[in-house]
Design a binder for these strands. Structure first.
Length: 105
DNA sequence: AACCTGACTTCGG
DNA sequence: TCCGAAGCCAGGT
């Protein structure tokens, strides 16, 4: 595991409940904003172990990347449980819920 | 080392 | 808004 992967996990853990972060944002925190895909891989690989609030990581469009039946509903339920409100099209208002690193921490 | 893969992102059409 | 193509990164085989 590279240092980057560890940083990704650490960054994800920092995301506070009720907030969300994009893959690119997490990647940036880990050192490479271009490694968004790798972030997805890490989550997919580590989510099994609990410990990671993977549900708080969404794509740049403010929507869940998982497909229905592939975890979409599960993630949506977890986020709603944290107080996040979804649009009728299943989108999340990033202006309101996006995690702001350095702010409030 | 080479090739494949993925919960991505951006740009065009 | 949807679809396809291209770029990008690191781990797994």
């Amino acid at each position: 595991m590279t240092h980057f992967t560890e940083r990704v996990k650490d960054a994800v853990k920092k995301i506070p409940a009720g907030r969300v972060a994009t893959y690119a944002q997490v990647a940036a925190c880990a050192g490479n904003h271009r490694a968004a895909r790798q972030v997805a891989w890490v989550l997919h690989s580590s989510s099994r172990k609990h410990g990671l609030p993977w549900q708080r990581v969404i794509n740049s469009r403010g929507r869940i990347s998982l497909k229905p039946g592939q975890g979409y509903e599960r993630q949506k339920a977890l986020l709603k449980n944290e107080g996040i409100v979804f649009g009728e099209d299943g989108s999340i208002d990033l202006e309101r819920y996006l995690w702001k690193p350095n702010v409030g921490e």
